[in-house]
């Protein structure tokens, strides 16, 4: 089949899912009483006074069918409503807060994958022996940990050892630097921007604040990768071409690393897509614990304060993100494993 045809086929398959997801969200929205639902249609702060008129204008107390086209139009125009928590239109607030979240993922994702692969290989090669048991205990403990609990423990530990509680993206002193006119924002990521601006104290400070959330996210998501890598390696090691490799007289490490591992990595690529979902979910909690001003913290506050527009907007966006990341992963998979393209 060829890579291009495969990509087109996959994209076409996504469309009904997106449509269905939109309908699902609409159904969820319908559950909300009309008064709160009106918030989904608010564009500017002024509109908040005129909720009744909004209800009439969009027929929010009429039948669902009438509302659907209207609601759809709102979404496509980019109006996801007004968030009380963020004090602004949902879309704008989300985009303003994304860089913080991306910064965490930027560091956590590679670490999760690298550690996950290394530990998974170790676990598989020494199956049922001590390294295996230790690694599995670490990984299982990792994802059994409630993210908020781990976060609070780390916070407390840093306080006990250093005397300060590290929360937020940057400390107060650096906050002033970032808000000052001398600072140029390029990406919204304090680490990158700090380097571009030449202010390494900002970079260091940002890294200091990133460390704990990154540790939490990495620990919890690492386990999934370790487990998959382990079973994938174990399966690859039973394959016949391993016997061939041995019969060629290759060193055992070479057999494992060159022959088994590359085949075992293939399924792990797919789980990278699911990992995105796991991280997004985990970030909601983690950012809250560390008061990290990212999308996750905003979403958590929306949930707590029943800010409907915020919650719905966040759900739609993460859903979209998840679907796209899975699509990318599927394409990557077909690229790496030539056999997949035939099916």
């Amino acid at each position: 089949m060829g890579l291009r045809e495969y990509i087109i086929r996959r994209i076409i398959m996504i469309i009904p899912i997106i449509i269905g997801a939109v309908i699902l969200i609409f159904a969820v929205v319908q559950l909300i009483p009309p008064g709160s639902r009106a918030l989904l249609y608010v564009r500017t702060e002024r509109d908040l006074q005129f909720l009744d008129q909004i209800i009439k204008a969009h027929k929010l107390d009429a039948s669902p069918v009438e509302q659907f086209a209207d609601w759809l139009r709102q979404i496509l125009e980019g109006n996801f409503g007004w968030t009380r928590v963020g004090r602004g239109p949902v879309l704008n607030v989300m985009f303003a807060k994304w860089p913080a979240t991306i910064e965490i993922v930027m560091f956590a994702a590679p670490l999760t994958i690298i550690f996950g692969i290394i530990l998974g290989v170790i676990s598989a090669v020494h199956r049922d022996k001590l390294p295996d048991h230790i690694t599995r205990l670490i990984s299982i403990a990792g994802y059994s940990l409630p993210s908020f609990w781990l976060g609070l423990i780390l916070l407390s530990l840093t306080y006990v050892t250093t005397g300060t509680v590290i929360t937020g993206r940057v400390s107060n002193s650096v906050q002033n630097i970032v808000k000052s006119p001398a600072w140029h924002t390029y990406t919204g990521l304090y680490t990158i921007d700090g380097i571009i601006n030449g202010r390494f104290d900002v970079v260091l400070d940002a890294l200091k604040h990133l460390a704990l959330p990154v540790i939490v996210i990495t620990t919890i998501n690492m386990a999934g990768i370790i487990r998959l890598m382990r079973s994938s390696m174990l399966e690859a090691l039973t394959k016949n071409y391993i016997i061939t490799a041995k019969a060629k007289g290759l060193k055992n490490t070479k057999v494992i690393n060159k022959h088994a591992r590359r085949n075992a990595l293939i399924p792990v690529v797919t789980i990278a897509g699911l990992m995105v979902a796991g991280m997004l979910s985990g970030l909601v909690i983690t950012e809250t614990v560390f008061a990290f001003e990212g999308v996750g913290q905003w979403a958590a506050q929306c949930a707590t304060q029943l800010d409907i527009a915020g919650v719905i907007g966040f759900t739609i966006f993460t859903g979209l993100l998840f679907v796209i990341s899975n699509l990318i992963v599927d394409i990557l998979y077909a690229y790496i494993d030539p056999r997949i393209r035939l099916g």
Binding site: P16, A21, L31, S281
Partner: peptide, 24 residues
């Protein structure tokens, strides 16, 4: 399977949050 796909295409905790908040 389309039904299941639709639900699976959202991260679990986040969709649960949406449901809990929206349920009357």
């Amino acid at each position: 399977m389309r039904f299941t796909d639709i639900i699976i295409c959202f991260p679990g905790l986040i969709l649960a949050m949406a449901f809990v908040v929206a349920l009357p």
